[in-house]
Design a protein around this nucleic acid. Structure first.
Lengths: 190, 190
DNA sequence: GTCTATATTCCGATAGAC
DNA sequence: GTCTATCGGAATATAGAC
């Protein structure tokens, strides 16, 4: 796997998270690398190829993280918190979430990239659903909704939290972040 | 105020909500109106002018709705539900929220439009904060967070709910919608 | 005041050089 | 295999016709 190819994906992802899929061009990428924009087309013939690769790379990173946490025997609480900390990092860097960014542009995306996006969201939701379910059985979490609905809520709060924080203030994301943890923290019996 | 001008804003808003700010062109608008794209520049010299007008029109509509609900003596619960029903309608029409759409593209927007966006989000949050505060005093709502934090959460859930629903399924927004109402519904003492 | 013809820049993409 | 010169078209925008 070429190093240039990897850098293109990396820069492309950064651009999707900062300027949006329709807000950047091959030029933006090639300038950073000091090459002509057409050179990017060698690695990714169309922007659709690049977009798909960005999502796939991101999805793969997610799977590796999950595998890692499993092999390190992270409990459900720590797994969820590790996932959420990715969003804390994005907030610090004024980036938004890949899912929220592409969610805005979804109607302008071709089928392959659209499908890849749907697949990734499905995967994350179902991962979190299982995590919440198992964590609740152990008493690590407490919530009343069906686990999938609770997962939907958490993901939605993270996604729009980053968007709102970029418009308003970074601290607003931290507020939302904290409220998520409180939402699922087991309450002592009264 | 010219009728063409109003139609341009209307079509422009629709396009921001379906394809994103960087996902449509003056051509898209002029084609619908059966004129040349340059005619749109007569009304809005630059896309920045159009973008600003779209936000201002939207913000004005919000203020009119609030005024209306006040004069009709809507209680806080009905006011919040009316606001949220706007999102139900957007979900049916597969549109996302203006705030979420522009939140993705915010780094590509020029200062005037960026400021207009910030102003509108600030206004909505503080409106909802007051609403929640007053409604809680009357016993219409129940929540433990500071009112502004609770408002942030509700807005975030609505914004990302629409984005996720467009990627996954319309019914996922309804799930989130319902969960918001449950989140702030007063619980009977046990 | 309203719109069109036209300019300019930039985009994604191809053909071909090295 | 890697990259550049270049194309066709679309984007925003101006100057000027009616």
């Amino acid at each position: 796997m070429s190093i240039t190819r990897e850098k293109i994906i990396e820069i492309g992802e950064e651009l999707v998270l900062t300027k949006g899929y329709n807000g950047f061009s091959y030029q933006d990428i090639s300038t950073v690398l000091g090459i002509k924009n057409a050179a990017v087309h060698y690695y990714f013939p169309s922007k659709e190829n690049l977009g798909t690769s960005i999502i796939k790379t991101n999805a793969q990173r997610f799977e590796e993280m999950v595998d890692n946490m499993e092999s390190l025997n992270f409990d459900e609480w720590n797994q969820l918190e590790s996932f959420m900390k990715l969003y804390l990092k994005s907030n610090r860097e004024s980036k938004i979430c890949l899912l929220g960014s592409l969610g805005t542009d979804v109607n302008t995306l071709s089928d392959p990239i659209h499908q890849e996006l749907t697949k990734m969201v499905d995967r994350i939701i179902s991962w979190m659903e299982t995590l919440l379910q198992n964590g609740m059985k152990k008493g690590l979490f407490q919530f009343t909704l069906p686990a999938r609905d609770q997962a939907l809520r958490i993901l939605a709060l993270l996604i729009a939290g980053l968007q709102l924080a970029r418009i308003l203030n970074k601290s607003d994301f931290k507020t939302i972040y904290q409220s998520i943890l409180e939402e699922i923290t087991p309450k002592p019996q009264s």
